[in-house]
């Protein structure tokens, strides 16, 4: 019975998402394709209102699909809205930052996010995010848009192929993580067991955060899609520690890049605030739905959305027609 209810709730969510978002994105794409100037002549409040509705749906989908809002926000909003990519990336970083700031305190208190693991990683990622942000703002928009599309398609591949390990087998800590005392204990709520954890391959993991930081800053994406596989599969942190530390890490990585965008004038409050409100309330609704349903196909919907918006970003960047 509960399985049936769960499936029905999932189907209802998918139907709701499709019903609300599909006509809006169709309308947005059509408006932009048939008459780009119409975007400027439409009443000023129309696009922010559409943005509020779309980001609300995005917030629901992000929670159910287990992805950060930023990774959906940048490709979809830059693909279908009249806003320049500079402002979309600035808003995307602030959306991801606000989500990470909201989750951070609770995750730190529960000892699921590890400050000792986050500090060295964040130092590298946030420094590189500044470089990424500066590179992203210096490169021509079509180049960044095309690279964004390619990155989004790469994220789809990661989502399709990357496995997760609840408790990776770490036989021995490496010397760097031992010296930095990066280990801990947490209580697994589902079993009541205390889990001792430690990590390995720290130098390689830290090196990968150079690339992750640059990409986060360049595209304005939250980088949870890359943080979690590196922390979990490569460095061997348990999945819960990886997810929680990744979420907390975004509050530091995105802070450094957000300042670059803010100081370069890439922040328009009329884009940022409706996005934040939409994502926040959507996430709250998403969490409620998540309690009664675990719709696995939402993951496929997220993959489909990313695939679609990634292709849209590539065609937009290359100036090719996109049939929608």
């Amino acid at each position: 019975m509960s399985q049936l209810f769960s499936k029905l709730a999932g189907l209802g969510t998918a139907a709701f998402v499709a019903t609300v978002s599909s006509p809006i994105l169709s309308w947005a794409a059509e408006t932009m394709a048939t008459n780009p100037q119409a975007a400027n002549t439409t009443a000023w409040w129309v696009w922010p209102l559409v943005l509020l509705v779309v980001t609300f749906v995005m917030g629901i989908v992000a929670v159910l699909g287990g992805v950060g809002g930023g990774v959906l926000f940048v490709p979809i909003i830059s693909g279908f809205f009249p806003f320049h990519l500079d402002f979309v990336r600035g808003a995307g970083l602030l959306v991801a930052l606000a989500g990470a700031l909201a989750a951070g305190p609770g995750l730190l208190r529960m000892n699921l996010a590890s400050l000792r693991l986050a500090i060295p990683v964040a130092l590298i990622a946030s420094t590189c995010a500044i470089a990424g942000a500066m590179m992203g703002l210096a490169l021509p928009t079509n180049v960044v848009q095309t690279a964004l599309g390619a990155t989004i398609l790469g994220i789809v591949v990661i989502m399709l192929t990357a496995k997760k390990s609840d408790y990776p087998d770490v036989k021995e800590s490496d010397s760097l993580s031992s010296a930095l005392r990066i280990y801990g204990i947490y209580t697994e709520a589902s079993t009541g067991k205390d889990i001792n954890w430690k990590i390995h391959r720290t130098p390689l993991g830290l090196a990968l955060f150079v690339i992750i930081g640059i990409m986060a800053g360049m595209f304005g994406l939250g980088a949870g899609w890359a943080n979690v596989p590196v922390l979990n599969l490569l460095m061997g942190a348990p999945l819960k520690i990886s997810v929680a530390t990744s979420k907390f890490l975004l509050s530091i990585t995105d802070t450094s890049a957000a300042w670059v965008y803010l100081n370069k004038g890439c922040v328009i409050p009329m884009i940022v605030v409706p996005s934040l409100i939409g994502i926040m309330f959507g996430s709250l609704v998403g969490v409620r739905i998540l309690k009664v349903a675990k719709p696995a196909f939402i993951k496929w919907m997220v993959i489909g959305l990313l695939l679609f918006s990634g292709l849209k970003a590539i065609t937009k960047g290359l100036g090719l027609p996109f049939f929608f």
Partner: peptide
Amino acid sequence: MTDSKCSCVTKEASEEQMLYAAL
């Protein structure tokens, strides 16, 4: 998963982690 070196670690978040979270 168990590591004898981890015996000094507690389940509770460290003092600096709690301070960071509060701020």
